[in-house]
Design a binder for these strands. Structure first.
Length: 433
RNA sequence: UCCCCGGUAGCUCAAUGGCAGAGCAUUCGGCUGUUAACCGAAGGGUUGUAGGUUCGAAUCCCACCCGGGGAGCCA
């Protein structure tokens, strides 16, 4: 038996009638007198292995009857087609090897509370639903990289340690850096601007950190962001890129993860519909929509989660809101030459209330104007000398954006909360496991 | 930081001032096609922590701890 070929469950269809070996874990078990039904998982799928008393030794039959949930096992048997199976095949077991017996496994197939599951996140990952989510996350990340790699962008990794500077330090995680303090990055953007002046079209992709005391379904303290930055791009080109990029990611998930989306009971038609062009509205038009809906909002205020959801309800695909008031955006945003009160920026709000997935815009490329902004925001000029250098040595119009991976995963998977979109979520109230 | 809700068996919950309970999980027994299998039995408790009220507290009061939901915050 030990010379049987090891086959992954996802590939079982090509081996009908053959004697094979499965290497995995016991997902579930039912017994019926002279039969044991073992649900075996191996990370690629779940299949039922049937142990009939007449087919195996007494020892093997007894072992099959007492294997505990999540014990690791090797199963030897014949692949058989069976209409009753959800994947179309079963294994008729000939022999079994208990690799390691699991003691009482805490996560059952019944309902559990969120707190309990998060405390057991290291085990929760074994559940089919979590596997489907992480497979979709994998595809999203792959698509992100494929998109930029296929469109002449250079990957430039941004640093994680950053010096004290950008916009005060209240939202940054502080850490010891030899004899001085350093902070964990909350964005690679400023470094990408430097890289864009060197290489033209660049992107970074990595974890970023926010020490905000935010307790909502859209926030994590550690999350992953992809940030492209392009020299000689204006706001319109930036928006065109964001639109094309999102369409590519969504359609690649629709194409490659249909089974995972079905397992998550996602309405796939809503994703199939995510095609260019996306609606584009100005901040002023967004305010009009909110006022029509009876929301109390004044011109100049930024949008919260409720406002974003209200606006997104008017559209069946991502909506691009551009030209926010300068005062509610960051210092590096370029002012609209046609209206100094507006910034050349864009937020992309996902449909179905999933909120902002992209924030970006055209950067201030004039050295004097940028210096003025740094002073207005009471930022320490010396920390930005290198950033100002980019405007001194061959400044060009440039633009970019950042896309939050977890919010994108939550949207495509149809999840209520971002905590399930990352293997080990880091939140204000939770850092374990 | 603020507001709301919660903490009872491994898990999900019940018991609202008077004997600490159920389902699932676990263990044992039964069943040749189970799909969250089913049937029978058993074991399993410092009711988050500390104090107070009371003849008597899981239950009422106070403080604290932990968690959940939301807000603010959020390049």
């Amino acid at each position: 038996m030990s010379d049987c070929k090891h086959i992954y469950i996802s590939k079982i269809g090509g081996h009908e009638g053959e004697d094979i070996c499965l290497k995995g874990w016991l997902y579930g078990k039912r017994s019926s007198g002279k039969l044991h039904f073992l649900q075996v998982r191996d990370g690629t799928g779940i299949i039922q292995a049937v142990v009939f008393k007449g087919d195996v030794s007494e020892e093997v039959f007894a072992t099959a009857g007492k294997i505990s949930q999540e014990s690791s096992i090797e199963v030897y048997g014949t692949v058989k087609e069976d209409k009753r199976s959800h994947i179309g095949y079963e294994i008729a077991v000939k022999d079994l090897k208990l690799v390691s017996e699991a003691s009482e496994y805490p996560i059952t197939h019944k309902e559990h509370g969120v707190a309990f599951l998060l405390e057991n996140r290291h085990l929760w990952l074994r559940s089919p639903k979590q596997l489907a989510i992480l497979k979709i996350r994998h595809q999203i990340i792959k698509s992100v990289r494929d998109y930029f790699n296929n469109n002449d962008f250079l990957l430039v990794d941004a640093p994680i340690f950053t010096p004290a500077a950008c916009e005060g330090t209240t939202n940054l995680f502080e850490t010891e850096y030899f004899d001085e303090k350093a902070y964990l990055t909350q964005s690679g953007q400023l470094y990408m601007e430097a890289a864009a002046m060197a290489f033209g079209k660049v992107y970074c992709f990595g974890p970023v950190f926010r020490a905000e005391k935010s307790k909502t379904r859209r926030h994590l303290t550690e999350f992953w962001m992809v940030e492209p930055e392009m020299a000689y791009y204006d706001l319109k080109m930036d928006m065109d890129l964001a639109e094309d990029f999102i369409e590519y990611i969504v359609q690649s998930v629709v194409k490659h993860n249909r089974k995972d989306l079905e397992l998550l009971e996602r309405d796939i038609s809503k994703l199939e519909n995510i095609k260019k062009p996306f609606p584009r509205i100005t901040y002023d038009e967004a305010i009009e929509i909110l006022k029509q809906k009876g929301k109390e909002i004044e011109w100049g205020e930024d949008f919260g989660g409720d406002e974003e959801t209200a606006i997104s309800e008017n559209f069946d695909r991502p909506v691009m809101i551009h030209r926010y008031p300068t005062k509610c955006k960051a210092f590096y945003m370029k002012q609209d030459p046609e209206n100094q009160d507006l910034a050349l920026c864009v937020d992309v709000i996902a449909p179905e209330g999933y909120g902002e997935v992209i924030g970006g815009g055209q950067r201030e490329d004039d050295c004097d104007a940028l210096l003025e902004k740094i002073k207005e925001h009471n930022l320490p000029q010396e920390a930005f000398e290198w950033y100002l250098d980019l405007r001194k040595y061959g400044s060009v119009p440039h633009a970019g954006f950042g896309l939050g991976i977890e919010r994108t995963v939550a949207w495509l998977c149809g999840l209520h909360h971002v905590r399930e979109t990352i293997p080990f979520p880091r939140m204000m109230e939770r850092i374990r496991p």
